[in-house]
Design a protein around this nucleic acid. Structure first.
Lengths: 222, 222
DNA sequence: TAGATTGTTAATCGATTAACAATC
DNA sequence: TAGATTGTTAATCGATTAACAATC
């Protein structure tokens, strides 16, 4: 109800889909009501944080009882608008592009790739999961005609900016970028970068620190 | 030099690979020295933040001059240990698993998948980029023998925990998890979750808010 | 020298955590 | 009723941003 609160913390936005996925399995197991204590236990999160996150979707729980799983799921769906499917274009049908095309689980999150684009003649004309690969030349025009608002970039770095420009020219307002490139877009267009190297770096540095401290502790023990 | 500071902010860790990638292209363009002002301009980041991030790697710049690109790259490589390759196992050779196997750019980040595992008889025995797919039964044993410390999970959700257990049993200390599952591991094992649904949710919510505010503004103008 | 840039310290901002009253 | 849980307000923590002296 409280639509005036338009700022939602990004960490919260990132956690909400995790709750959703979890609650789906909870419901499948036949549980109708759940508490934050329980969710927190399964998801390794603090209950007050979960309560605050869920409150952003507008849902209210019952003291002593918890939340109704089904209405919690509906609340999340409404919050994100997952009941309506957003159509998207994908550019760059390489390894990552193919994986994204073939993954059908995104539909659950109101997201569907309806056309793919590439410049490689060997790939143009092929289909993946009923999505045809067209030549990138046609991106802007088709985008305008189909009123598509979301674009996925999984091209090599060298092509990313040009593809982004074509997307913006076609009216795309949100870009999900998997290319290791910084994309410049005009105001009013959103870029969400998905950089696997960042996650890998976090993991390997944490591991490095862990092993070091382990060695140090062993030496101290000796 | 200051190894006593063992805590590095995670946002910094996530940005450092972006600098590295950027500096590689800077060097390729023949530039030998660069300032944070310049980096910030190209990467859409504030110069003082970049300075602070880079300081964690131990590098020092020269006032008025900036940083030497080459020594900056070396400093980053040393900081992360990218000069030594970490060998990793991957479990779950589906769409995402194949994309990760085929992507060779990770070697630049000291990371190489040396064996892949699956339970599907149709996939076991195949090779991708010289990496052979073995049956998951062999994971734990081979892991112990090869002293592999990093595991990648790209299995379906239902298999993720079991694979994680096998990895931990084989001595793996760091898990890069692409499955939409919360994995329980003993203390001393690190899990880095890579959840595409989170990124997608952030993008679509931001887009939603953008379109709403746009419409509101239009109405106000009318 | 003057201006640009680094490096450091302080101030701000925002998210998480803690505390606690309200409630079924 | 008593205990568990929600929802809210306050305190803490950590990262970003601002300010500024030091320096080539």
């Amino acid at each position: 109800m409280n639509n005036s609160i338009s700022h939602i913390p990004e960490p919260t936005l990132r956690r909400l889909p995790l709750y959703y996925h979890y609650l789906k399995t909870v419901l499948a197991n036949g549980r109708e009501v759940i508490s934050c204590t329980h969710i927190g236990n399964d998801l390794n999160l603090d209950p007050p944080q979960i309560r605050k996150d869920l409150a952003y979707t507008g849902i209210r729980g019952l003291p002593k009882v918890g939340y109704q799983v089904e209405s919690l799921l509906k609340s999340l769906e409404n919050f994100f608008g997952w009941n309506r499917i957003d159509e998207a274009f994908l550019a760059g049908v390489g390894n990552m592009g193919k994986a994204l095309l073939k993954y059908e689980g995104f539909q659950r999150y109101g997201f569907k790739i309806v056309a793919a684009f590439d410049t490689d003649a060997a790939i143009v004309g092929q289909s993946f999961c009923d999505v045809k690969v067209l030549h990138s030349d046609k991106l802007t025009n088709l985008c305008t005609r189909m009123k598509v608002r979301i674009g996925v970039i999984s091209t090599p770095e060298s092509a990313a900016q040009q593809i982004a420009d074509q997307m913006v020219a076609g009216g795309i307002r949100g870009i999900w970028n998997f290319a290791p490139a910084v994309i410049k877009v005009p105001e009013g267009v959103i870029v969400q970068n998905e950089n696997l190297a960042s996650g890998l770096a976090v993991l390997s540095k944490k591991l490095q620190l862990l092993m070091q401290s382990g060695k140090l502790r062993q030496e101290v023990v000796k």
